[in-house]
């Protein structure tokens, strides 16, 4: 039977969580921002090695500027988490390390990937210095608009989950 894993996508509102999932699942993008309320759930099968597939069930959670307010029921049975911030809005990453600490407390022993999204809108040199100033280590810098690093981040998560199991 195919392995099935639940991934929650976390982060402030407007950081592009839904867009990342849409780019990954249907390879599409929309410039229109539509607020996510509650949770949208989609699924995509990822091939992690020849003949080895894993089914990622993606929980696109409503964005919040306070990670503590996430409904605990949404996190039940989570296998992996992706924390997304918006590289163009400092408010979404200024407290990132605290947010990540709370996330790991809520989801102990769960692989976590940190993603800075919307890199197509900034100069990479400036971005790196800003991230350094804020002491931020992101695993991926992505763009849902161009597709940059989107496939890679979910593939990385699938591999982590497979190895983690």
């Amino acid at each position: 039977m195919q392995e099935s894993k639940k991934i929650v996508i976390l982060g402030h509102f407007g950081v592009g969580k839904t867009s990342l999932i849409r780019r990954f699942v249907s390879n599409s993008f929309s410039d229109n921002y539509k607020v996510t309320i509650g949770v949208h759930i989609t699924k995509k099968v990822v091939e992690i090695s020849v003949g080895k597939n894993i089914s990622l069930i993606l929980w696109d959670l409503e964005g919040t500027d306070d990670i503590k307010t996430i409904r605990s029921s949404y996190l039940l049975g989570t296998h992996g988490a992706v924390f997304v911030f918006d590289v163009t809005r400092p408010s979404t990453f200024q407290n990132l390390n605290d947010d990540l600490k709370i996330t790991t407390e809520k989801l102990p022993d769960v692989p976590l990937i940190v993603v800075g999204n919307k890199v197509d809108l900034v100069d990479l040199t400036d971005l790196n210095s800003i991230l350094k100033e804020n002491n931020i280590n992101s695993d991926f810098l992505s763009s849902a608009k161009t597709g940059e690093s989107v496939e890679e981040l979910f593939h990385k998560m699938a591999t982590l989950l497979h190895n983690h199991a």
Binding site: I37, G38, V39, H40, I41, E62, R71, S73
Partner: peptide, 8 residues
């Protein structure tokens, strides 16, 4: 019992 809110 498990309760989930606002599920699309």
């Amino acid at each position: 019992v498990f309760k989930f809110f606002c599920i699309h």
